[in-house]
């Protein structure tokens, strides 16, 4: 009961802030609402008994990535006139397309979950206890290849960013 109340309160906040993120006119304010959103998502993780994920959520998203967003928003002149394009409704169309895609995906997941039973954690039973240890164990056993691919991807992105930034020098 208590958990349900907590969940619905958090969910309401998360959705509310998410709406504010896209409706606020001032970009900096919108980024700030995004931070709040991330913090509440972190709280949701705590509720799910995943403190490690919650802390990482705050550390990486709220403390790292959004700071970079803020930098960009603060430093880049956003008041440029929008460049002319042959299709003025291009953005609306793109938005609609993406929204439909996300909705379809969510629907698919919902259908899939009701028809198929929830899969248990693949692989052998974990020899470790504790949230952090379990995450570590899974990352380095069952999900080793996705983990490595993700790191490769990040490395490539990093090198790409450096090359782009250094081109002028």
């Amino acid at each position: 009961m208590g958990q349900a109340i907590a969940f619905y309160t958090l969910a309401a906040f998360i959705l509310g802030f998410a709406v504010l993120v896209v409706t606020t006119k001032d970009t900096v304010h919108s980024v700030l609402f995004l931070v709040l959103d991330f913090l509440f998502v972190a709280a949701l993780y705590v509720l799910l008994d995943a403190p490690f994920l919650a802390v990482i959520q705050v550390l990486v998203y709220a403390g790292g990535i959004v700071v970079l967003y803020l930098f960009v928003v603060m430093l880049v002149n956003l008041k440029r006139p929008p460049e002319a394009h042959h299709d003025p409704h291009r953005r609306t169309k793109l938005g609609l397309f993406l929204a439909v895609a996300v909705l379809l995906e969510l629907g698919a997941i919902a259908v899939y979950q009701t028809t198929r039973p929830v899969l248990s954690v693949p692989g052998a039973p974990m020899p470790v206890t504790g949230n952090t240890e379990q995450v570590g164990w899974l990352l380095y056993t069952s999900y080793l290849i996705p983990f490595e691919i993700a790191s490769m991807l990040l490395l490539v992105a990093m090198i790409g960013a450096i090359v782009l930034a250094k081109r002028e020098l």
Partner: peptide, 23 residues
Amino acid sequence: NVGLLYVVSVASVGVYGIILAGY
């Protein structure tokens, strides 16, 4: 369980005060 990570993540949020004050 994640005390140390908690310290680090909370400290990382502290930077907002400074950025926002300047902005």
